[in-house]
């Protein structure tokens, strides 16, 4: 493996890690604060990707498509919380799993009903379409770099939100201190709705910006959901920091797995997860149960 090839793969791994972080942070946030395990989280990633593709087809502009699909997904997330997830707070995880499993079936089928079974590509917007040459034979696409920086920007915003705002303070305190949440003047129902909306927005936004590199296809949410579970399990459920580290571990392990072990690529990240669990059953940054 040449140095530049190694560099490219590392960049790819980190970029994939950033993308996973966006999805997984939403998942871990919703679980950490609301105590809800949401299998439909990946489906929102798919919804984001499809909306971005569809709006881009209609308007001819990727930027416009992003601006249009983001509020739609946020509204969808808020509505899902209000009319579905809200009934699950007091329920056992088993029922949360099944309920959100039903939600996946519905969202997947609606996608097929509205957009069909085809795989769609989304052209990379013109200003970001080129590549930066690294050596004579190898180059790195600008869009992937843009993708990474976008994710970094979102991650930084998330960090500031959690470290610097009153909402963030509540989020850090977690669901175990409900009295404190009320004492700070937050309406729990409103807070949960916002958090869920935020989680959905993060997943959907990841789907949108990934669409030009990863294409848009039916069932795309399933894969990202399970990988996000792996990320969250490695990092420790409820920990944003853990989600970040886990996402990087998974992104890099997966990318190099594909390069080094073509026939066993899908297995690598799960093997990494199993190893982490044997060492620390509660994940890298999880609280001991």
């Amino acid at each position: 493996m040449s140095l530049s090839y190694f560099l490219i793969q590392t960049l790819n791994g980190v970029q994939y890690g950033f993308l996973l972080f966006l999805v997984a942070s939403g998942l871990t946030l919703v679980f950490g604060i609301m105590g809800v395990i949401n299998l439909a989280h990946g489906a929102f990633y798919m919804v984001g990707a499809y909306l971005a593709w569809w709006f881009a087809e209609q308007t001819g502009s990727f930027v416009l498509a992003l601006l249009l699909s983001l509020p739609v997904t946020v509204l969808l997330g808020l509505a899902t919380e209000r009319f579905a997830i809200r009934y699950l707070y007091a329920r056992d995880h088993l029922y949360q799993v099944l309920f959100t499993y039903g939600l996946i079936l519905i969202l997947n089928e609606l996608q097929r009903l509205l957009f069909g079974n085809d795989v769609h590509g989304l052209p990379i917007p013109a200003p970001l379409a080129g590549s930066i040459p690294l050596t004579e034979a190898q180059s790195y696409p600008i869009y992937r770099i843009f993708l990474s920086f976008t994710c970094i920007a979102v991650a930084a915003a998330l960090y500031l939100l959690i470290q610097r705002t009153r909402l963030g303070m509540v989020i850090r305190a977690g669901s175990t201190h409900r009295e404190m949440v009320s004492a700070l003047g937050f309406d729990i129902a409103r807070l949960f709705m916002v958090v869920f909306g935020l989680g959905v927005a993060l997943a959907a936004f990841a789907g949108m910006i990934a669409a030009p590199v990863n294409t848009v296809y039916p069932g795309m949410g399933d894969h990202i959901l399970i990988i996000s579970f792996v990320v969250v399990v490695i990092g420790g459920i409820g920990s944003i920091k853990g989600a970040f580290v886990g996402a990087m571990v998974v992104g890099i392990a997966d990318t190099f797995g594909r390069v080094l072990l073509p026939t066993g690529a899908g297995v690598v990240v799960y093997a990494v997860m199993a190893l982490v669990l044997l060492w620390r059953p509660q994940g890298l940054f999880g609280r001991t149960v």
Binding site: I37, H93, I226, F229, V230, V233, I237, L277, P281, V289
Partner: peptide
């Protein structure tokens, strides 16, 4: 709990 759900799924 929820870890068990996720881990059985992932494995």
């Amino acid at each position: 709990g929820v870890y068990f759900i996720m881990i059985t799924l992932a494995l």
